[in-house]
Computed example of a mutant assay.
Amino acid sequence: MSAAGSGAGPEGPVAKLIEIAEKPTFGQRLISWASRPPGRLYIPACAVVAAAVLFEDSVPAGHLPTFAFALGGGLLLAGMGALRMGIALAVARPMIRNYWLRWLSAPLIAAAAIGLAVADVPLQARVQASADDLVALGATTNDSTSIPLGGERTGLYSLNSVTVAEEVVHFEVEGAGLFYPAGLAHSPEEIPEGVFVPGQGARVYEHVDGDWYVWVEH
């Protein structure tokens, strides 16, 4: 009994000290968070957003849900990174020097994704990988004919329809276009870019590579 009593005695004061101990303020928690290098969640999150950017660029004229996700996620991660870097520069410079590779990972991932997207590398690569299948499909379509496909997979794209007009084959890609229908066009002849082309309705074209163009219907 005495042993039990002596063991229970110190726990009372210790428990009270823990209860009355000052809890970290929001600022202290923020400094503690920023003093640690980017870890297992932040860097993979940056990679996920970068992958979304590359996928969105591979869709003709963009893909609205992916664009919204990449924009929102990118802004959130950029804001978190800037805040973290600012606090770390103020109170934890040695942490930046010791873990410099982690601190550089997110900007490098972002720069690589943006650079590839600006150069249209994802779009060109996806079009080239799908070119043979798309050309074969277009060869089965007659002039001035539109064939609904209902999301049928051709190459690396799901298509809503294929249409031939004035020897230009138009493939409407499912989900393509931020605000207007869009897709790919294949033409052996050069198509003027950025203007309405006679005989092609309200479509505007942008060159991708070789005989391939992106079209957007306005």
Score class of each variant (00 low, 15 high):
L17M: 12
A111G: 06
V164F: 00
V162C: 02
S144P: 02
I87Q: 04
G115V: 03
V208G: 02
W103Y: 08
M1Y: 14
F171I: 00
V162Q: 00
S187P: 02
V121Y: 09
A8G: 14
P10V: 09
Y42R: 12
A15G: 11
D57Q: 11
G5Y: 12
I31R: 15
L101G: 07
I191N: 04
P38T: 07
L137Q: 01
A119G: 03
A68D: 11
T141R: 02
F67R: 09
I114W: 06
A131I: 06
G9T: 14
R84H: 13
V173K: 04
F179R: 11
Q200L: 13
P44Y: 05
P94D: 03
V118D: 05
A136K: 11
E189T: 10
E193D: 09
G199E: 08
Q128S: 13
V49F: 08
E172K: 08
V208L: 02
T154I: 15
L156S: 12
L134M: 03
G73K: 04
A125H: 09
V169L: 00
T163P: 01
M80E: 12
P44Q: 06
R126F: 08
H186T: 01
D209T: 10
L156H: 12
D211K: 06
L75Y: 07
L156Q: 13
G151T: 11
A111N: 07
A165Q: 12
L137V: 01
S187N: 06
V127F: 04
V164T: 10
E206V: 01
G177K: 01
G73Q: 06
S105T: 10
Y180W: 13
L76A: 15
I109T: 00
K16M: 11
S146T: 14
A165I: 00
I20R: 14
A15S: 14
H170I: 00
Y99V: 09
P107T: 06
V53N: 06
K16Q: 11
A92D: 08
D143A: 07
N160A: 12
A78T: 13
